[in-house]
Computed example of a mutant assay.
Amino acid sequence: MSRSSSGFVAGLTAVALAAVGFLAYQASASAPDHPGKTDKSPSASASRSPKDKKNPTALPAQSGAGERVVYSLEDERVWLVEASGKVKQTFKVTPGTVDPAPGSYTVTSRTGAVTGTDGVPIEHVVIFTSNDGVAIGFSAAVDGSTPRPDPSKKTGGIRQSRAHGNVMWQFAGITQKVVVVP
Rank of each mutant, 00 (worst) to 15 (best):
E76Y: 00
A46K: 00
R162L: 06
F22V: 15
L17N: 10
S5N: 13
A29E: 09
Q62G: 10
T38I: 14
Q160L: 12
A172T: 09
V9Q: 07
P182H: 11
S43W: 07
K40E: 14
G133Y: 02
R3K: 12
R68F: 13
A19F: 11
K53A: 14
T129Q: 08
V98A: 08
T129R: 07
A135F: 10
K86F: 01
G112H: 09
V179G: 11
G7W: 09
A65V: 15
H34V: 03
A16W: 11
P182W: 05
A101K: 12
A18V: 12
V120T: 08
K54Y: 10
K154R: 15
Y71A: 11
K88I: 02
P56V: 00
S109H: 03
T90K: 00
H124F: 11
S2H: 05
V125D: 02
L73V: 13
G21Q: 07
T129G: 09
S152F: 10
D143Y: 01
A58G: 08
N166Y: 05
A65K: 14
S5E: 10
L17E: 13
V178T: 13
P149W: 10
G112V: 10
F128V: 07
F8C: 07
A163R: 10
P102A: 14
S161P: 05
T108R: 03
L59W: 04
R110D: 07
H164L: 00
V93P: 00
V107F: 05
A18D: 07
A46F: 00
S63W: 08
S6G: 07
V87E: 05
T108P: 01
G116Q: 02
G137T: 13
S104Q: 15
P182I: 03
R159P: 00
G85Q: 07
I136Y: 04
D33N: 04
W169I: 06
L59F: 06
F8E: 09
N55W: 01
V87Q: 00
D33G: 11
L73G: 15
E76N: 06
